[in-house]
Design a protein around this nucleic acid. Structure first.
Length: 422
RNA sequence: GGAGAGGUGGCAGAGUGGUUUAAUGCAGCCGUCUUGAAAACGGCCGUGGCGAAAGUCACCGGGAGUUCGAAUCUCCCCCUCUCCGCCA
């Protein structure tokens, strides 16, 4: 969240950024509540001070004639404190609730625009392969390879669920291994994380209260299924003050992700591009504020190195103000080319969230200039089922077999995923 | 799931209604002494809110209550540990 001080002192900037995001936030209401809160706070504290002093005198005196009148007086002061404090609590509760609805400020250099159509392509890398035949979408390849069982996935769980089999299941595992090894080799610490987190953790990471509709949760207990490992990483150091010299901290994890999405009937219905459950390898960085821009650049560079090593064409997008997520100030997307579907697939989103999540999660560090909020960044590296799609569609051969990219062969133990024998 | 014991500052550990603005020790920082270091001695040594400042208020796992006054008493919840049961 933004600090109330920041909103108070930079009201115009905050309002402008909310508008640029093409959303709304109760800024004026927040400012009024803040004013009321400070007024009540001063009154309550003045009365408390009075009571504390009187209570001390009462405690030191043994003489009932001196004690009784003071006790009676303080009883009244106590009632007044209760009354004002009750109002204060009400005001604070509403204020804090409203503050959680305000999105992060935007990087001033972010391209302006109302929605994803205004995102800017900043780089396109790699030659789209020329096929001597009409390239198939991955679901057709999957049929030839007997690699994805859509019908039984639906039978077991419902629409948008599937089963990966044989070489394709192995391909996904190989990609996970490859990605994790790339990151751990360069010093990222691998983590195995909880896939279910408490409500407090979802609030801290910025998923709640605004995005409740997108989350799965346990019906009886306080467990939410993570929509991304980012949520877990934000909470790793929740309510902590990190010792001096500990930053930066760079992590990576492979987790499943669960997202409750309103699936529109005609869109992305085929294949494994979009589901309620998918795998992802996620990078996450805690750093000092001065370093976050450089860390974001590094994360983007890392993410784009992966399609490069896989030999798959990709492009880099800089998200416009209307498409940048609630928590982020600046975001780059990486999209892999999928020739069978004839579209670009988003496989990574790299965001700098500044101190927005650190503040929500109450994470600080000791550094020069005292105790401060670190900056938090996240980047996929990369999303799995879409990587699987990209490999299948880019490396397909006319008979429907799929060549295994060079870098994955040690993990696959094979050079080609062959068609199933009928 | 059952029974029991606990949760106090970076760590250890006092404190069961009022001179506690949480004792004391360790660790840490500054200084004195010293050629230097150690030791000794002195000082500092949690987080946040409000306030121009002086200052003040809050925080002893979380919440509610009793009281003029709560770390301390009552209730609810969370978590940790030990034993038992179950389980991968």
């Amino acid at each position: 969240m933004l600090s109330i001080q920041y909103i108070r002192e930079n009201t115009e900037r905050v309002k402008r950024d909310v508008a640029l995001r093409n959303t709304t936030a109760p800024i004026d209401r927040i400012l009024r509540l803040d004013e009321e809160r400070r007024e009540l706070l001063q009154q309550v504290e003045q009365l408390r001070n009075k009571r504390n002093a009187a209570s001390k005198v009462i405690g030191q005196s043994k003489d009932p004639a001196e004690r009784e009148p003071r006790i009676l007086e303080m009883r009244l002061v106590g009632d007044e404190i209760d009354r004002l404090d009750g109002r204060l609590k009400t005001v604070e509760t509403e204020l804090n609730g409203k503050l959680l609805e305000v999105p992060n400020i935007l990087d001033p250099n972010a391209p302006k625009g109302p929605d994803e159509h205004s995102n800017v392509v900043v780089d396109v890398v790699g030659e789209k392969r020329h096929f001597g035949f009409h390239p198939r979408p991955h679901w057709e390849l999957a049929e030839i390879l007997d690699g994805i069982d859509f019908e039984r996935g639906v039978k077991m769980a419902g629409s948008r669920f599937y089963v990966l089999k044989g070489g394709i299941a192995r391909l996904q595992r190989a990609l996970i291994q490859f990605y994790l090894n790339e990151h751990t080799r360069d010093g990222f610490t691998e983590c195995y994380l909880p896939d279910m987190l408490s409500e407090a953790s979802l609030v801290a990471a910025g998923q709640l209260p605004k995005f409740r509709d997108n989350l799965y949760r346990d019906a009886e207990q306080d467990y939410y299924f993570i929509p991304t490992a980012e949520v877990a990483f934000v909470n790793l150091y929740r309510d902590e003050i990190l010792p001096a010299g500990m930053l930066p901290q760079r992590f990576v994890a492979h987790t499943p992700c669960f997202r409750r999405e309103k699936m529109s009937a005609g869109r992305d219905v085929r294949g494994i591009k979009r589901g309620h459950q998918f795998e992802k390898v996620e990078m996450f960085v805690y750093c000092e504020p001065e370093q976050s821009q450089a860390e974001l650049d590094t994360l983007v560079r890392r993410a784009r190195s992966l399609p490069e090593k896989l030999g798959i064409p990709y492009r880099v997008l800089e998200l416009c103000t209307g498409d940048i997520g609630f928590n982020a100030t600046k975001t780059y997307d990486i999209e892999m080319w999928a020739p069978g579907q004839d579209e670009w697939l988003e496989v990574s989103s790299a965001s700098n969230c500044l101190d927005f999540q650190a503040r929500r999660a109450n994470i600080r560090f000791r550094g020069e200039g005292g105790t401060r909020y670190p900056h938090l960044l996240n980047a996929s590296g990369l999303a799995l089922p879409r990587s699987v799609i990209a490999v299948m569609e880019n490396y397909q051969r006319e008979d429907g077999s799929v060549e295994v990219p060079e870098v994955l062969r040690p993990y696959m133990g094979m050079d080609v995923i062959e068609p199933a024998r009928r």
